[in-house]
Nucleic acid binder design. Structure first.
Length: 198
DNA sequence: TGGATGATCGCA
DNA sequence: GCGATCATCCAG
């Protein structure tokens, strides 16, 4: 079992927390319908030096949650049709988070198939928008705490050895492309394909 | 490879 | 107000 997740786990530097979220379980419950998956791919975003971060620049209503204490849930809506979910990191005032990009399904697989409208297991949760559709994540979860919310939670699940963790540049961004801040479990079937370098 | 589709923000 | 931008997904 991985180390128990605590407030101090999330308040650490973003690049420390990001790879350690691999192997954790993300779980949601909506109206008693519960689904979960193991995190297999993440990306780090830091407002201080990273132009791709939503928290780069001034604190606004949109990025406000990224500036709260670590362990909060930052959800945003993008391209007019997709939600993405992040774990806020570092102490209050920092403006940093880890985007969850891919999960390996654990519980509620039939529910996820119905929400996604696909049968292929790999297509269920191998992308940030797909995760939110499969687990029913939207702005109702914005600002909730992953350790105390009943709707969306994070728990320790598997310990991932360092040798199993790959690192690359991030996907789908146009600024600060060179930063190697994407982390994933090597060889896992749910890791999204395209990447800066393997 | 490009179109869908809406929230956000800088600038007027 | 207006328009450019955007941490995506899927069909063709």
């Amino acid at each position: 079992m991985a180390a128990k997740l605590t407030q101090s786990f999330f308040n650490r530097p973003t690049l420390t927390v990001a790879p350690k979220l691999l192997g954790a379980k993300l779980a949601t419950c909506r109206n008693g319908v519960c689904t979960s998956g193991m995190i297999v791919e993440v990306e780090a975003y830091r407002g201080d030096i990273d132009q791709a971060a939503h928290s780069y620049g001034p604190r606004t209503p949109r990025n406000e949650v990224m500036f709260l204490e670590g362990g909060r849930c930052y959800v945003y809506f993008i391209y007019g049709m997709h939600h993405c979910v992040n774990v806020v990191t570092e102490p209050e005032g920092s403006g940093a988070a880890v985007l969850i990009r891919a999960l390996e399904p654990i519980e509620g697989i039939e529910i996820m198939k119905r929400r996604r409208g696909v049968k292929n297991l790999r297509e269920l949760t191998n992308g940030p928008g797909k995760i939110c559709q499969a687990l029913g994540i939207d702005k109702k979860m914005l600002g909730q705490h992953f350790l105390s919310s009943t709707a969306i939670r994070l728990e320790s699940y598997r310990r991932i050895p360092g040798a199993m963790i790959g690192q690359s540049t991030r996907i789908g961004i146009s600024k600060s492309k060179h930063l190697p801040w994407r982390f994933y479990i090597k060889g896992n079937a749910w890791v999204s394909r395209k990447s800066g370098y393997p």
